[in-house]
Design a protein around this nucleic acid. Structure first.
Lengths: 148, 148
DNA sequence: TTCGATGCAAAGAATTTGCACGCCA
DNA sequence: TGGCGTGCAAATTCTTTGCATCGAA
């Protein structure tokens, strides 16, 4: 079951959207396909720029509205790594959970996973005075390019 | 040495500032004292509001300028827990390093520490493709108040 | 035909910058 | 007295909202 990875996240998202009573629109479809093709998180403005470059203009307001909608449905994850803007990435089933490395100088964002770290988080969550529903970890530093 | 905790972070900060060639001004002194009295991170606007309530108005631009300055000197830590605004907290010597719990519904921010988690981060940092200089961990969920 | 999806422009919120004046060193 | 520190207002940047129109079902 859950063969979503096979048929693409964009299709999965479309299905979830229509099942939750949404109509299908060109702007959103374009945005879904763009996100599906990405490996790392994009900002709203980067999304707008890429789509414009591809001759599939989508109004900035629509980008934000669609992303907000997708986040509400649990289809994308909003990542706030500083720099004063949010980034969004598809929330897939299999390869899902990960965290981010951020280069302080060039702004590069890349994902990483670490089971050991996740275990530490799990244990910790039980001992903390809030009902933890999610967590975010960001490691900052200089990437290979900028280190030199 | 390092008796800073005893004499107060504000004084320590003042010293570092003057040693780095800064003059002393009323706005900054007020801001330092306010920060020193806090246990958790404040946003620029909260700082402005509290100071205004105390009849020690400081222009918002000054708040941002001062905070930026303090961050550059390593005197405060900028915390970005989402909600679209940055928070700042004094970086003390002893009780220093910690991370944050954030309540999604009321916005409450509180600190926590976990040695085990720190160890996991340390180990991880060595295996990752960037020179890690810092890390941030945020656990989100519902606090005791909001859980009900 | 209906109502959500989208574009466009204006509104908002947080942060930054420009400039003049005041005050510390 | 000189120049940093500060206030005030305008400018920026990211994001949201209002409203009219377009298009999918």
């Amino acid at each position: 079951m859950v063969a979503k990875a096979t048929q693409g996240w964009a299709d999965h998202a479309q299905r979830v959207l229509s099942e939750s009573g949404h109509r299908s629109g060109g702007a959103r479809r374009a945005l879904l396909e763009l996100l599906d093709a990405q490996t790392c998180a994009l900002s709203a403005i980067e999304i707008e720029d890429v789509l414009r470059a591809r001759k599939r203009r989508v109004a900035r307001a629509s980008v934000y509205r669609i992303l907000d909608e997708l986040e509400g449905l649990g289809l994308v994850h909003k990542v706030e790594v500083g720099q004063g803007m949010a980034r969004y990435e598809p929330l897939r089933d299999g390869d899902g959970h990960h965290h981010h490395l951020v280069c302080d100088s060039c702004g590069l964002v890349m994902p990483f996973t670490d089971p050991q770290l996740e275990r530490a988080i799990q244990r910790l969550s039980a001992r903390v005075p809030i009902d933890v529903s999610e967590h975010e970890i960001v490691l900052r530093g200089a990437c290979g390019e900028c280190r030199d």
